[in-house]
């Protein structure tokens, strides 16, 4: 009997300890506001960056499959350089060397930096998607009298999008996680918010685990959301 009392007593103590830790680190002094702010920063930077990355990716993917050696060269140099350098290093170069001396805001540099980085990966995703569409589709379109552009836009791209979507969405999710290096240029993203709570409370595990849980919820939720989208798009493939 005593054993059980001790056992449940210690479990109770553990949970009340967790609760008080949670209160101390996340609730007291409105620290959750810091987390909310960090989460918002992470999301809007990731979303803006993925928009920029998508635009860059579209253009460069078209460059990569174009007949012009010059355009292909540009696209290849871009993807080689950007994919060969870690995001943190790139961000610091973009900020400290290139954009800050021009008087650009850190958040904007973060968006542009992540966008340029993501663009290189999206380029490869789109290129693979376009080249994955059977050449016969292009031939069928062209032999009906459609122009190269019409064939690309109405026949190849819709199919490429469908095959590229799963890798494209996982790139977006990867980007959300990668924004955690934004603290290198003093942008207060979700990860940095956790750092700041750690610095204020000197409690390491509660802020870290809380931040981890938020990242997980975010990425898991998006994965599920995109899976639904993919299923919708896959409708015509049933049979």
């Amino acid at each position: 009997m005593d054993f059980f009392m001790d056992f449940f007593g210690s479990i109770g103590a553990f949970f009340s300890g967790v609760a008080s830790d949670f209160y101390q680190t996340m609730i007291k002094d409105g620290r959750w506001l810091l987390v909310a702010e960090g989460l918002w920063t992470t999301i809007y930077i990731a979303v803006c960056a993925v928009l920029i990355g998508t635009v860059i990716g579209c253009l460069l993917a078209l460059c990569k499959i174009s007949k012009s050696r010059f355009l292909r060269g540009i696209a290849n140099v871009y993807t080689t350089i950007i994919r060969g350098i870690p995001l943190a290093t790139q961000l610091m170069i973009f900020y400290f060397v290139i954009f800050a001396p021009m008087g650009m805001d850190r958040h904007l540099v973060a968006i542009i930096g992540c966008g340029i980085n993501s663009g290189a990966y999206v380029t490869e995703i789109f290129r693979a998607g376009i080249q994955g569409v059977d050449i016969g589709q292009t031939e069928a379109g062209r032999s009906l009298g459609l122009s190269r552009l019409q064939t690309m836009w109405r026949i190849v791209i819709p199919q490429a999008v469908k095959t590229a979507l799963p890798t494209y969405t996982s790139e977006f999710i990867a980007l959300i996680k990668e924004t955690s290096v934004l603290s290198f240029i003093a942008v207060m993203d979700l990860n940095k918010a956790g750092d700041m709570i750690r610095n204020a409370t000197y409690n390491a595990w509660m802020p870290l685990l809380s931040i981890a849980a938020i990242y997980l919820l975010l990425t898991f939720g998006l994965t599920k959301l995109f899976a639904i989208l993919e299923r919708r798009l896959a409708r015509s493939d049933r049979g």
Binding site: G136, Q137, R142, L144, S236, D237
Partner: peptide, 21 residues
């Protein structure tokens, strides 16, 4: 493109557009 409108082509592997009805 204008010439091809007047020349129909049928392929071994049909090449129907799978994303369209």
């Amino acid at each position: 493109n204008r010439v091809r409108r007047k020349m129909g082509m049928v392929f071994q592997h049909f090449n129907l557009f799978p994303h369209l009805t």
